[in-house]
Design a binder for these strands. Structure first.
Lengths: 227, 227
DNA sequence: GAGTGGTCTAGACCACCTC
DNA sequence: AGGTGGTCTAGACCACTCT
């Protein structure tokens, strides 16, 4: 191994070995470049990666420190549901349970930054994995992003239509646990009150809100990632 | 704005505008460098960031494509519990409920890559926020990583001792929803069967397993992040 | 074999921040 | 005011992988 990855490994090793304990200032880029016999840019690359991982804290003039109370950063992959199901070699299908124009509930209007009571498209979709209920998707969609006539979401999943036609957007995502409502339970085929893993996402373009979606995952769902 | 961030923004804009639709091959680095009047390294930096975000897919010789079915990547911060509580201006405290040497349950031994029935330290800690139950932490700890004599975890939280003395490690993390067990309910002061948000982590150093920890969060907990 | 991205270098300038 | 990291350049070599 050589190059910036080798330097990252060596620095990490010195941190683990407590040569550079938590909170300590480490030598500056030029000194390390000399020590390792590489260009400063190579050291910069290695240290920047460690800073991104939360292991180091870097500030101009102040130098580079080992993070005292490291905030571990985990990267989650949020796949399209169909891709997630098919990655487990299961067959994916979806059924459109509801589709209606509805005024946006006030709480959601606030989260999306939309006018209260705005006319939104309400969609409820049940995703199936190998024919069994997998995820109940409840979505409010800004009709302004839709073409006229609107696509038939009975055949093409909404989410896939969005990623293909609206493109990349910003937003936020939240995870929680909720007891299954009567509606959740009916759709997912579980008992009311069962512990469900809930994902909630809001997405925006630069100019307008796009959608709010709540995913209620069938019992047993796990979201997993490497640290 | 100028530099690599400007180029990233312009490329992203062309993708959103569908000048470069999903799946399309975009010009190579040298062509873009000429067009924007910058060095190839600057284009490389911009495109690498977009690839890291999952917007582009890059392969030598094959070139750079707009991701067809983008896998959104969300970065989660996993703070030390005390820091998380204090960040909300609440007072943190913890009580050590149990501490015992116990053989590692077979299921956990497999996950940690430890010999079945290995002698581990079992610790159960209740974290309080403003005096109210916040998280029930259930942990198995490899005694080999502890000094002799072992620290008194009644005063210093285990997790903080670990981050300060064992240092950075690899591992994995999983999130799920579970009904509260009788034990969970008693500790957290909620009803048995209530929907709890569960975090499970396993961590290793290069050479040995360190710990498995299960965090049962009190009802209402949300894990949130930006996309 | 050849085209593409990944990385490295040596030097430079600059933004930022602590002192 | 001056030290530090952040970025850019122009050029080079290399690793990978598609054809």
């Amino acid at each position: 191994m050589s190059g910036w990855e080798a330097i990252r490994a060596e620095v990490l090793s010195r941190i683990r070995r407590r040569d550079w304990p938590p909170g300590a200032l480490i030598p500056n880029e030029e000194a390390l470049a000399q020590e390792f016999g590489v260009a400063r840019a190579t050291v910069n690359r290695a240290l920047s990666e460690l800073a991104r991982a939360g292991v180091l804290e870097r500030r101009r003039k102040a130098g580079t420190r080992v993070t005292a109370l490291p905030v571990r950063k985990a990267t989650l992959d949020i796949p399209v549901i169909r891709a997630e199901v098919e990655a487990r070699s299961q067959r994916h299908a979806h059924r459109l349970l509801a589709r209606a124009r509805q005024p946006l509930p006030p709480a959601l209007a606030a989260r999306l930054g939309a006018p209260a009571g705005a006319d939104y498209l309400f969609l409820q979709t049940l995703h199936l994995a190998d024919g069994r209920p997998h995820v109940l998707e409840t979505r409010w969609l800004n009709p302004a992003v839709l073409p006229d006539p609107a696509p038939d979401f009975a055949t093409l999943s909404i989410n896939e239509w969005l990623v293909a036609h609206v493109g990349f957007a910003t937003g936020d995502i939240a995870f929680s646990a909720e007891p299954a409502s009567v509606e959740d339970a009916a759709a997912l085929g579980c008992a009311a009150g069962a512990a469900l893993f809930i994902t909630e996402r809001t997405t925006f373009t630069d100019v307008a809100p796009i959608t709010f979606v709540r995913l209620a995952h069938a019992p047993g769902y796990r979201l997993q990632t490497l640290l």
